[in-house]
Design a protein around this nucleic acid. Structure first.
Length: 112
DNA sequence: CAGCTGACGGTAG
DNA sequence: CCTACCGCCAGCT
């Protein structure tokens, strides 16, 4: 387990219930700007049982990243809806469920 | 050491 | 909305 990987997991674990964040935002929060792909890779290797809100991580567009129709895709939509997040056609309206600048700052102490 | 490979992101058409 | 490209770079082969 690499230090950078651990920070990615921490960033994901910090996403509040009922909200979502993009791969890029997680990477940035983990001190790895521009490494969104690394975040995706890690989640791909994440064991089923691991306690981590992996399903709260979406593409910057609000779309679920997994292949539409795949098992993981359906599971992610289910988990998101289970905590009140609206998912239509594999997409979540970030305008309402995404972490905005204010919440982002309050949660992670980022500069204004 | 030289490629390959992404649960990505942004732009252009 | 969709496809096509290109930039990205740690981690694997």
């Amino acid at each position: 387990m690499q230090e950078s990987h651990a920070r990615v997991y921490e960033a994901i674990a910090a996403i509040p219930r009922g909200r979502v964040a993009s791969y890029g935002a997680i990477a940035a929060r983990a001190g790895l700007p521009g490494r969104a792909r690394l975040v995706g890779k890690l989640l791909g290797e994440t064991p089923e049982g691991m306690e981590l809100p992996w399903y709260r991580v979406l593409r910057a567009s609000g779309h679920v990243a997994l292949p539409p129709g795949s098992r993981g895709f359906r599971e992610q939509c289910r988990l998101l809806r289970a905590e009140g997040i609206e998912v239509t056609n594999g997409r979540v309206p970030l305008s309402r469920f995404g972490l905005d600048a204010d919440l982002d700052r309050a949660l992670w102490g980022l500069p204004p």
